[in-house]
Amino acid sequence: MAAVFLKDLRSELRTPSAISTLGMFVLTTTVLVSLTVVTTGPGLDMNALDGAALKEAVRTGARIYFPGQTLVRAQLLSAFFWIILYFGALTGIPRVFTKEEEQHTAVLLRLVARPSAIFAGKLIFNVILLELVAAAVTPIYLLLLQPVIARPFDFGAHIFVGTASISGTATLIGAMVSRSGNRGYLAVILGLGPLLPVLVAGINGTAAAMQGTGGNYVLGLVSYLGMMTALSALLFEKVWRD
């Protein structure tokens, strides 16, 4: 297991294909989103009064809008973050497996290592890879899109656990895709169903952390991570062997 992990690490350091695919994709998309999507204005970073307070303000000619991030903006920015991470993960992580097939080292790996050891090694490598990318992109995201975050610790915890959760399932899907004639785009379609729960929990969790409202999904994400990793480990052997 450690050997598989170290081999991947050394190979990645020599020719950084997975991290460059992933990092470039995530960075480009974040910049593109921040350039093109309007995230300021009434209803986004200005709260409007409503109900009786609105009627009273209209009658007296007082202010209706007050500065402050709305829930809509928090949900919008959270959704972008997780969508970017999802697409990044499912285009980058299959590279770890397709690389083996391209360099014809997969055959050798099948001979020398047990499938469970390979899965564990690849899983640890992928989790660390995606966590690094998330750690690198989060500051850029914060700088460019400027979300107001009421509970930074909760925000970080959701990203940390959600990222691990995505890479757990993406490892199995990456293995599947690498065996299906290296069709990388398939991973994005295959991942949607199994990973939608992670995306929903992640989006709601980070939005709640931004707004300082209730809603903590860390425990749910951890249990989903555990369940999916166990299932993936079980299925990986069948996908991997010849």
Binding site: L172, M176, R179, S180, L190, G193, P194, L196, P197, V200, A201, L231, L235, K238, V239
Partner: peptide
Amino acid sequence: RLTSAYAILGAVAAPLLMYV
């Protein structure tokens, strides 16, 4: 083998979707 593994993944994810 690949598609069966995916069918299992789908059958596990399907009821969760209803909840999520």
